[in-house]
Design a protein around this nucleic acid. Structure first.
Lengths: 208, 208, 208, 208
DNA sequence: GATGAATGAGTATTCATTCAT
DNA sequence: AATGAATGAATACTCATTCAT
């Protein structure tokens, strides 16, 4: 961002400097999301991406240095999208426990309308392990931060930490898989309610 | 024509009919677990598997019809191994809640000593989706069954069901990922204790 | 035939010396005719032949030294069969011209009930060119011999020779292909009549 | 999105869009004719074709989707070549009977200088049966058409039809095999004369 | 003689990447 | 920037043949 000198004249694999370049790069990225989501990394060829994007195969390398590079870009794109989709719901929640419930419900909605999410993020475990790890550590960090704040406000136990955050992410991910991808009958609200009851009251039978 | 037509000769991709065949098939399977676990499905060639198994490349197809087929066999093998590893710990637990805690602790131990587990199972999402689904639905079914029994004994809330089972599997899987693969400082017992506290008491602050 | 000493104890790839051996060899040959006829030389594996014959794959080499060898045996078998099928019809004919007509009619009948004939004989052009050549030169030689005899009896022109015999074989082969394999509406008698008219009277318009 | 979506980039296995592409495609086709003619379909590898054409092995698939596809193209190419070679000779003939004689003579010349013809066309019976059939049905159709016209002019019997055309094709093919491939002493003119005498006067002894 | 397993050379095809216009 | 053709390494799978029992 600071340096501007290092950009070569043709800016191969760099940021577009013209409107035409911008359009081409974005078309490739959008095409890649669809293709990777539908067929997976290994079954998708550069040719499929360029065909869908409507550009010549050679043009791909003007904007991305490799297939792996565009995959990373796709993961980052999706990762940011989930985050941004869930954030407002969390902000609107009255307290910490409600926030987690809202986060899950919002996440389930996102998954339903973006079923490629899992195929792409999960495949990153093999194609770009660091992107994969970054995605989930980001999710954990956000939950952990929220829990810390809620603990400070006395809304949750004071000793909850990273471990609990991981557990919650795991719950959410699997409920998302079950609800959003494999498709079960429940509504997002039902799923979120059950999960909420679990994390709020645990499994123990109610006294009294 | 007169005599009983003997068994259809040879058994490509079938069950071994001799001890030698049995040994070869097993050697291939073991080699495949190691290779798929270390390099992943796409980066592993039949040649690597046969080399490690100490047989000629063509011999592979005497016992498995395709690379995908041996991958499925590997998933099934591992899936059964986790199940069998966890089962005794569960049986030894005094009650339903303790059983879940013991299950997680035992699972964490398994993951630590079989770090290929995740690479292989997770990759099945792309290579053999039905095997992947079968693996997790099996895990969920076993937990759900335990919860039902525990509920009947009054050890857990009466309304817990499949949804809770999914949530618990998700928790376990992610804690396994964190503890067993990415390696954190806690002991299995610590992790299990934290998870246990969560599912037993939830996130709510203690009253009084 | 003369020597009997050269036969090894196990007579690999030789003539069977026991009833069991005789049955096995014959079963392989019959299976090969069916498989080569149905799928062609290259698409047929030894495994298909042994499977259909009901023997273990290794047993094949007890009776034939190679795939090519059994193919040659199959060609010779079929070649002899056509010859023996046509011969009686020819013998029964009253004169030379009638003999050729009868030969074609009989040949057409053979082709209809042995549609593998063409697939196998024709493929010999590539797999065993000498067998192929031998087959057709045999057919030509028989016709040429008949024409010579007929000429001597004054039933056909005195100057007919090898060239005419080749032409007749070509006619017969293509009429057999058309009638027997690609299946046309005419009866063998019709086809034979048309061919006969052609070789008896030529194409010239009838005078008067 | 706004601008006209350009042509679907790249054209694997399509028509060349540049002179360079045109040259490469043609070089592959010529190389294939020679290799298939010399070694046959199964014994010829893509590597042989590309080596002779002077291109990288992968380039083959830029222009043909499979080995079978180029074989079909080769058959069609040769088929058209025979047709175009014979046509002028036929047109120059004074009448219908002379035309058939000229056709055979011209065909024999073609076969002599293109001995690959038989290996390739005949192998099509196994590799691409529809191409094989199309080739011979085309030849028959052309002869049948000529006979019809000749009959209309009173130059041949009025009742000649498809059957006669097939018979003539068969004669020509076998005479071509004998003369052009297996090589006999006669000249094309001699062979054509004998065939002509046969189809003009038949086998019958001359009256008088 | 028969069996079933082992062998390993051979090959069509794919595809990320490069390059000349 | 874009195009379309060229590149060539990589690999799953086949199958005739051999061999130990």
């Amino acid at each position: 961002m600071a340096e501007t000198q290092q950009q070569a004249a043709s800016s191969p694999s760099g940021e577009p400097r013209t409107p035409r370049g911008r359009r081409t790069r974005r078309a490739l990225l959008d095409a890649a999301i669809l293709e990777f989501g539908a067929r997976g990394f290994h079954a998708t060829g550069i040719a499929e991406i360029t065909r869908r994007a409507g550009v010549a195969s050679g043009s791909f390398y003007t904007w991305f240095p490799s297939k792996e590079a565009i995959f990373r870009a796709v993961v980052a794109d999706l990762s940011a999208r989930v985050r941004d989709h869930v954030a407002p719901a969390v902000r609107a929640a009255p307290d910490g426990l409600a926030a987690e419930r809202a986060a899950l419900e919002s996440f389930l909605g996102f998954v339903r309308s973006n079923p490629q999410l899992y195929r792409i993020i999960d495949e990153a475990e093999f194609v770009a392990p660091d992107s994969y790890r970054a995605h989930y550590e980001g999710a954990v960090a956000r939950i952990a931060e929220r829990l810390r704040a809620a603990a400070a406000r006395g809304e949750v136990r004071a000793d909850v930490g990273e471990l609990e955050a991981w557990a919650l992410v795991g719950m959410n991910v699997f409920l998302g898989l079950r609800y959003g991808i494999w498709g079960t009958g429940e509504s997002p609200a039902e799923v979120a309610a059950a999960a909420n009851r679990l994390i709020v009251e645990g499994l123990k039978p109610r006294r009294g």
